[in-house]
Amino acid sequence: MSDSASDDVTPTTNPLSAAGDLVIAVDHVGVAVPDFDAAIAWYRDNLGFVNHHEEVNAEQGVREAMVGPASGDGAMIQILAPLNDDSTIAKFLDRNGPGLQQMAVRVTDIDAVVAHLTANGVRLLYPAPKGGTAGSRINFVHPKDAGGVLLELVEPAAGH
């Protein structure tokens, strides 16, 4: 018998590592908020975070910002506020209220990751990647296939 729960973990192989480490980091967590400016102020005033990037993504129906430590190191928090009542974020807020909306992982080749996932029967929300923050390419794994989490795949734009 084992003395530690970690001793009971069976090592697993990572089929993506053979393809060149396509999934490289947690990129950010997305937080849905009804008041964009108030959320930015909260993270600034309480955690000292700075707004590293801000934009309006009309296709997604959101105003968004990436906030984090001034150094820019590590994963960011993505503030997501709806532009209108029809946006996905507005619908999320109506159902759940403010809070964690998604987690994103950074990938080096979204097309290869998507091909791998779909070959394994994993459902994605879009048939092809869409435009994301700062020119990135994104897609989402259906929450039912990712343990109840809306999992975003992010391939940053060149130079980011």
Rank of each mutant, 00 (worst) to 15 (best):
L80F: 10
T108V: 08
D45H: 09
N51P: 07
E54A: 06
D27I: 05
P82C: 12
A81I: 03
A104Y: 02
G148A: 11
K130I: 04
S2M: 01
H28R: 05
F140M: 06
G132F: 11
D37H: 04
D85F: 08
V50N: 08
D21H: 07
A18E: 14
F140Q: 06
V114P: 00
A32K: 04
N139E: 09
L93R: 08
V141D: 00
S71R: 12
A157F: 10
T10G: 12
L151A: 03
V33A: 09
W42D: 03
A90N: 00
I138M: 03
A115G: 13
F49M: 02
G131F: 09
Q102V: 07
L100I: 13
G148C: 03
I24H: 13
A19C: 12
V50R: 10
G97P: 06
Y126R: 11
D7W: 13
L117R: 02
T12V: 15
F49W: 09
A65D: 08
E64K: 07
G72F: 01
P127E: 07
A18S: 14
N14T: 06
F140N: 06
G20W: 03
S6Q: 02
G99Q: 07
Y126W: 12
I24G: 14
H160V: 10
R44Q: 13
R95H: 15
L125C: 05
A25W: 03
D94Y: 11
R123P: 03
S71D: 15
G159Q: 11
I77G: 00
P98M: 13
A70Q: 01
P156K: 07
V154S: 07
V122P: 04
I40K: 04
M1I: 01
E155H: 11
V67R: 11
I110A: 06
G99N: 10
E64P: 10
G61Q: 03
E55D: 05
M66L: 15
N57D: 13
T10K: 06
D145A: 10
V31S: 07
V149K: 05
P129Y: 00
V31D: 12
G132P: 05
P11Y: 05
G99T: 12
A90V: 09
N139Y: 05
G72W: 09
G74V: 02
R137M: 08
